[in-house]
């Protein structure tokens, strides 16, 4: 089965039953395919994002746990920074994964990444709560202006982008991640970074450039 339901697609997600567990193989990784064929168990912790998507779509609960492990900090942080309440953020995080799991049949892989889908669900829940809060407040204060409510979605999307970017930068491998952290978070110049990391200036700049283009791609996948 092709995940995108394209006949001529070369991906071959396959599932095999073993000890009651759904197992998934994606041919993008030959080594993994061979391991699968040899009957080894899937270790979702080592799974690629594409594999997780397939596993999630097919309904392996162990896969949900791994998706949760990877994405819960992101979802929780977005809710927490947007709402400032740990109770609300716990509830939203829980709701996002439960409803994503229940609606997994609707998840269209080609429409974006799994974390993008989860963020989309979280965004709705956050807006619902912000809206409810705003409304309670207005009813109590008899204030009818709606400008605050309408201003929120844009602020929320900026917040989400910043959190996603922070996480992506944190995930970049060394030295690319270190270079970007020094440049963006600590405001160092490229010559300073080159000296500190003992790398040629051209290499530092090239890493920064590549990293920026990577961030752009990731952000588009997650928030489109």
């Amino acid at each position: 089965m092709c995940l995108r339901d394209q006949r001529d697609c070369s991906c071959q997600a396959r599932i095999v039953a073993k000890a009651g567990r759904v197992r998934v193989t994606f041919v993008i990784d030959e080594a993994r395919l061979n391991a699968e064929a040899a009957g080894e168990d899937v270790d979702w912790r080592a799974a690629t994002e594409a594999e997780l998507r397939v596993g999630f779509y097919q309904g392996d609960e162990a896969c949900l746990q791994e998706v949760f492990r990877r994405s819960a900090p992101l979802i929780y942080t977005i809710a927490y920074r947007a709402l400032g309440s740990s109770t609300d953020s716990e509830e939203i995080t829980q709701e996002v994964f439960v409803s994503a799991w229940r609606a997994r049949g609707n998840y269209q892989a080609e429409k974006g990444s799994l974390s993008g889908w989860l963020i989309g669900i979280a965004r709705h829940r956050i807006v619902d709560r912000q809206r409810a809060r705003g409304r309670d407040l207005r009813l109590v204060q008899a204030v009818t202006t709606q400008t605050d409510v309408q201003a929120q979605p844009e602020a929320l999307s900026t917040l989400i982008d910043r959190i996603v970017l922070t996480e992506e930068i944190g995930r970049l491998p060394h030295p690319r991640g270190t270079i970007l952290q020094l440049a963006f978070w600590e405001g160092r110049s490229y010559p300073q970074i080159a000296e500190q990391l003992d790398l040629p200036l051209g290499t530092v700049k090239s890493h920064a450039r590549r990293a920026l283009l990577h961030l752009r791609t990731r952000l588009a996948e997650v928030t489109s």
């Binding site: 900090p73 992101l74 942080t77 920074r81 917040l159 910043r162 959190i163 922070t166 996480e167």
Partner: peptide, 10 residues
Amino acid sequence: SRRPEQLAQV
């Protein structure tokens, strides 16, 4: 990217 938002303790 210059305004990072550190992940909260979940």
